[in-house]
């Protein structure tokens, strides 16, 4: 709290300067969050409240806006944010192996931070460096043409504090994941956020045992399903309907 007040005081002139760039103060919301995140490592709720006050918004509005953007972290993160591209071009060029290697080396998964607070790992959408697939960003600095050897060297250098990219500010101990937890299951890690091979939010990652049993029953009974959508499909995609008919 006291540390934040000091930070706020320090950044206030810069904040005012940012706000002055725009015709309407609210426009400064994203740049201000960037600014505080740069100093705190994440967008703390104190920072969000301070921004709300500066821009005459309700704290809820600021939080709502911050939560929309994946580069804003509402919980502390590691000193090295490792963001590996999972876009199509990278996947075509072996991104899956690279991601598997990262997970193995770090011992954590998508959207997680190592217990020592050093690394945070995320699999992100196309980074616009498809010509240098597979690629990643370390604290938003590009690393291209990844190989397992490069990963080994990179992680070793980071652990030794000798990596060329500066670590992020870290003002609080990061929890296991920086995604605010929506329910107990996500917190326990039973559900995934949609990384490699795991579908999106709150999803049990494919079918659980009951699902498999259900699926097998349905398979036995599949004709029922087919019939119902058959006519519709015939209008939509006759070729596919034919293909499936075979």
């Amino acid at each position: 709290m006291i540390a934040f007040d000091a930070l706020l005081k320090k950044l206030k002139p810069k904040c005012d300067e940012i706000i002055a760039q725009y015709e309407q103060p609210r426009s400064a919301l994203l740049p201000l969050v960037h600014l505080f995140q740069q100093h705190e490592g994440y967008a703390s709720s104190e920072a969000q409240h301070a921004i709300a006050e500066m821009l005459a918004l309700s704290p809820a509005v600021v939080e709502s806006t911050v939560s929309f953007y994946t580069l804003f972290y509402r919980r502390p993160i590691g000193k090295y944010m490792l963001q590996v591209c999972r876009g199509l071009a990278c996947t075509l060029n072996g991104a899956e192996d690279i991601m598997a290697y990262f997970r193995e080396q770090l011992g954590i998964g998508h959207l997680q931070t190592t217990p020592d607070g050093l690394f945070s790992y995320e699999e992100v959408e196309c980074l616009a460096a498809c010509d240098r697939a597979t690629c990643m960003q370390v604290n938003l600095n590009f690393v291209y043409d990844l190989t397992p050897q490069m990963i080994d060297d990179m992680l070793a250098a980071m652990r030794a504090g000798k990596y060329s990219v500066a670590p992020l500010a870290q003002t609080a101990t990061p929890p296991r994941t920086w995604m605010p937890v929506q329910d107990g299951e996500v917190a326990r890690g039973d559900k995934s956020d949609g990384a490699q091979d795991q579908p999106a939010p709150n999803n049990p990652g494919g079918l659980d045992r009951d699902g498999v049993i259900m699926l097998d029953r349905i398979i036995a009974d599949e004709a029922r399903f087919k019939g119902r959508t058959r006519e519709r499909l015939a209008n939509v995609e006759p070729a596919l309907a034919d293909a499936i008919e075979k």
Partner: peptide, 23 residues
């Protein structure tokens, strides 16, 4: 669609899912 496609990745697609994906 994402979830159904994911099921395909696990070799657990259904034939009716193919119609579903298109539809």
């Amino acid at each position: 669609l994402e979830r159904v496609l994911h099921r395909f990745l696990e070799n657990r697609g259904l034939r009716s899912d193919m119609e579903m994906l298109a539809r």
